[in-house]
């Protein structure tokens, strides 16, 4: 009898060891990348609660030009998801928006993350936009490229040809201040991580400047949703390895797993995309730097409608 128990325990322990070895990368990454404690007032409503919840998506250039720990956010998108109805609202917050920062003073909103990380970025958005943020996800340049490549690329209908003679050549490991030429063709296409990065990051040949870039970022974000159903438990170790250090979030792996079916079930006709174009914002100059001045009355009315 004792021998039988020992044999069963031995096989169980051996099997568990094999599984643990396989999932070791995702376990290590989950400890480092998820469950990040954030000083502030995260609502932490979970995707599994089936209640509406909000996620603040932050994207930074994190190449050698920038000091780790003091990164600007080139992209800031507030997303509200209603699991029960499938409705999603995406609000792109312009990086040049001149706002009161939660830690004091006023500045472009892209400096909030640089001056206190996710906690300051979240607190600033909550304070200025009068919204409750439940979760956040931060991703760096290589993180986005690797994530899209690990998902097998994304299918996007690009709005227009995106041509840029001064695109930063900062991912190749050479001079981080060098430029390269990029040309992303118009129309429906399959994009690798690198091409998707060029599409969402280029800004020089767009009459709408950062607004155009925000629109493209929303398109790729929506395209990523169609890949959610292709991600299974067995994929997590590879994805975790690919993203290690390039993605930070307060969400647990359970939250991420609960989010996948919601994302893959989203219908495009239930997605509202909001850009804070004029008259919500206007060009201005503060201390010699070009900024976007918010019209808070209009913005608060719009946000109250979309982020109740």
């Amino acid at each position: 009898m004792l021998v039988a128990v020992l044999v069963i325990v031995g096989f169980t322990a051996s099997g568990l060891a094999g599984a643990v070895a396989y999932f070791l990368p995702v376990l290590a990454t989950s400890l480092g990348a998820t469950g990040q404690s954030v000083v502030g007032s995260l609502g932490n409503r979970s995707p599994s609660d089936h209640d509406p919840f909000t996620v603040l998506l932050l994207g930074s250039d994190d190449d050698a030009k920038f000091v780790p720990g003091h990164l600007l956010t080139q992209s800031m998108i507030l997303v509200r998801v209603e699991p029960a109805t499938g409705h999603v609202t995406m609000l792109s917050i312009p990086r040049d928006l001149y706002v009161p920062i939660s830690t004091g003073g006023s500045a472009k909103i892209d400096t909030a993350y640089a001056n206190g990380g996710a906690a300051t970025a979240i607190a600033t958005v909550e304070q200025d936009f009068k919204v409750q943020i439940d979760h956040y996800v931060w991703i760096g340049l290589r993180g986005l490229v690797n994530l899209i490549d690990r998902l097998g690329g994304v299918d996007v209908v690009t709005t227009n040809p995106v041509l840029d003679d001064f695109y930063p050549a900062d991912l190749a490991g050479g001079d981080p201040y060098a430029f390269e030429r990029v040309a992303v063709m118009p129309g429906a296409q399959h994009m690798s991580g690198l091409v998707a990065m060029e599409y969402v990051r280029s800004r020089h040949d767009d009459l709408r400047e950062d607004f155009g870039r925000s629109e493209r970022q929303q398109q790729v974000l929506l395209a990523l949703r169609t890949k959610a159903h292709t991600v299974g438990l067995a994929d997590l170790p590879d994805i975790a390895s690919a993203l290690k250090g390039e993605i930070l979030t307060d969400m647990s792996l359970r939250d991420v797993a609960d989010l996948m079916p919601i994302a893959s079930g989203l219908s495009l006709d239930k997605v509202a995309r909001v850009l804070l174009l004029p008259p919500y914002t206007s060009d201005a100059s503060v201390d010699g730097q070009a900024v976007l001045q918010p019209d808070w009355d209009r913005i608060h009315a719009r946000v109250a409608k979309s982020f109740p």
């Binding site: 096989f11 051996s14 094999g18 396989y22 999932f23 097998g152 994929d235």
Partner: peptide, 21 residues
């Protein structure tokens, strides 16, 4: 056999991912 079983679990999970890909 126990060691082989552990290795099989590790390999099997990798195979599942490969087939999924």
């Amino acid at each position: 056999l126990m060691a082989g079983f552990g290795l099989a679990v590790y390999t099997g999970l990798g195979l599942v991912r490969h087939l999924h890909d």
